[in-house]
Computed example of a mutant assay.
Amino acid sequence: MTNIVIVEDDIFLREELQSILQKEGYSVVSISSFDTPVEEIIAANPALVVLDLNLPNLSGFQICRTLKEKGIGPILILTARDQLKDELHALELGADDFLTKPCHPKRLIARVQKLEQLYAKLPILLTWGAFQYDAKTHVLYVGNDSLSLSENEGIIMKLLIKHAPAVVKKEQLFAELWGSSEFVDENILQVNMTRLRKTLDKVGMSHHIKTVRGIGYQLVGSE
């Protein structure tokens, strides 16, 4: 089931959008706090983001740019701003589609389905510094070199790139790798990190993974 994240500060419209999408069988997460919206969106692991532009703290333009830099997409802009310059700017920042409010529910669903179909055929490339990771094939590109990662190595690398330069907590890694940490020995995470570092050693890039003692791991170094 596709996971859609709604980023809309109007509570009534947010609930309406959630209802429309859920009736079509989508799993929906709504962002209702806008202190750290980018982090909340990434944590929700969206397959698609419905994003307003007029938001408190960070504008939708800023959020769109940051999400695209972290390989999050597709992004469907849904906004009351109907100026051509706003649409062009959003598209320049990486937005995949642009709709103005009010929007007929059938038009919204049609655009969501179109983006789903389009992205199903595209590689999912996440980029950070010299790293470029294809989440579909588990291949990591470093400059002119490429490395085939195991599934677990790929999951770890995906999280590190998506959250970079922030720290990925151990709990997040356990949740993505094994569902939870309840019945998993913490040493197994260290084993998986060691394997990933050994893989990155082949291209001299293992030093970019930093251990934050007692908390987790992060990508460091110049982007």
Rank of each mutant, 00 (worst) to 15 (best):
Asn3Gln: 12
Asn3Lys: 03
Val7Thr: 04
Glu8Cys: 00
Asp10Lys: 01
Arg14Val: 01
Gln18Cys: 09
Gln18Thr: 08
Val29Asn: 10
Val38Asn: 12
Pro46Gly: 03
Ala47His: 03
Leu51Gln: 09
Asp52Trp: 01
Asp52Arg: 00
Asp52Gly: 02
Leu58Glu: 15
Phe61Lys: 04
Gln62Lys: 14
Arg65Ala: 15
Gly71Cys: 12
Gly73Met: 03
Ile75Gly: 08
Ile75Asn: 07
Ala80Asn: 11
Arg81Cys: 14
Gln83Asn: 15
Lys85His: 14
Asp86Arg: 00
Glu87Ile: 01
Leu88Phe: 07
Leu91Glu: 14
Leu99Trp: 01
His104Ser: 06
Lys106Cys: 02
Arg111Gln: 00
Val112Asn: 01
Gln113Arg: 10
Leu118Asp: 14
Ile124Gln: 14
Gln132Tyr: 05
Asp134Met: 05
Lys136His: 13
His138Tyr: 15
His138Val: 06
Leu140Met: 04
Val142Ile: 08
Asp145Phe: 02
Ser148Gly: 04
Leu149Trp: 02
Glu153Lys: 02
Lys158Phe: 06
Val167Gln: 07
Val168Arg: 10
Ser181Asp: 14
Ser181Pro: 02
Glu182Ser: 14
Glu182Ala: 14
Glu186Tyr: 06
Arg195Asn: 12
Arg197Trp: 05
Thr199Phe: 01
Thr199Asn: 07
Leu200His: 06
Ile209Pro: 02
Ile209Gly: 09
Thr211Leu: 08
Arg213Gly: 09
Gly214Arg: 00
